[in-house]
Design a protein around this nucleic acid. Structure first.
Lengths: 161, 161
DNA sequence: ATATAATATTACGGAAACCGAAATATTCGC
DNA sequence: GCGAATATTTCGGTTTCCGTAATATTATAT
């Protein structure tokens, strides 16, 4: 369509190089996939409950307990009871957890830097703009909650068959 | 440095949406990570030996045998002995395996298409060019084998401590 | 020709991370 | 106080990987 066809093949061929450089290995050893997602989600939300975590990473409650167990034992997240409702467990990153995220972002940043080394400044600028656009697109496309609720009581288009 | 700093945060926040859309789920259920890499590598190389596979996916031989066992049982790859050296096992994709790859590429293509929906044609063109550059950069950076072997018997730099 | 090396499979036992179901504990709201 | 909500614990089972060692088959070198 617009010349990305063959690029896809190229990217698939280089998938391994792209997503599994040496730098990732340590991370890969330290955490499972769900653990990484849990930490990242926690970093984003600052405070979440077990139920929220379960909804996000999409695992049974018993599994989530295990995941959190490990992360607590490793010292990356803190597990406290809510003051207002003592049934609820509140998760948050410890300082070590925050440091971990910082390091992770640093790693990603350096990795990107390496990958983008060949690009000119203009290309980088352009790429940054496009990346922003893509992320926004993603957000709208996969999470149109706000828009939905906003339009909820406005107009209801009815498809006619 | 060039405006990608905050973009990284944005991307991390959307990691899950980016890399684990609904479409991927079926794939995730059907294969382990190493299985996917094995199939993709096989598609790229057309024919490989167990040893080559092991070098690529970086697992013990006994594990690789298990991986291939599963993929053979599922009908995606064929396992034959080399005619010229009967110790060697030659792996190749079956027709069903090739179809699988085709579908996978199709999936990726559609997914990309969705993600890039917001971009103008010029932006897509530009992105294609940049992508090419990045991949080439990757190839040179992580696989300078040819250059190495060429220089092998030329000069040997000796580190002095 | 025989010993050695290379290639791969098989056979263990063991670990990590997950599933799902059921039992338990605490606490909240009514 | 009772039923619902929140989370943990327990338990048996599955998958996928690890690492070691034994075995089988074939190629190569002396």
């Amino acid at each position: 369509m617009f010349g990305l066809d063959n690029i896809i093949d190229l990217f698939i061929d280089n998938l391994k190089k792209l997503f599994f450089p040496e730098e990732w290995i340590e991370l890969d050893m330290k955490f499972s996939k769900t653990e990484i997602f849990s930490i990242l989600y926690l970093d984003k939300r600052k405070e979440i409950t077990m139920t929220e975590l379960v909804e996000y990473i999409n695992v049974p409650m018993s599994t989530a307990t295990g995941i959190v167990d490990r992360l607590v034992k490793k010292g990356y997240i803190a597990r406290e009871r809510s003051e207002t409702d003592r049934r609820i467990v509140v998760l948050r990153l410890t300082e070590e957890g925050s440091r971990l995220i910082e390091n992770l972002k640093d790693l990603i940043y350096k990795y990107l830097d390496m990958i983008l080394a060949d690009l000119t400044d203009e290309e980088k600028q352009f790429l940054a703009r496009i990346a922003l656009k893509i992320v926004h697109n993603l957000e709208n496309r996969l999470e149109p909650k706000k828009a939905e609720t906003q339009n909820k009581n406005q107009v209801k288009k009815i498809d006619i068959e």
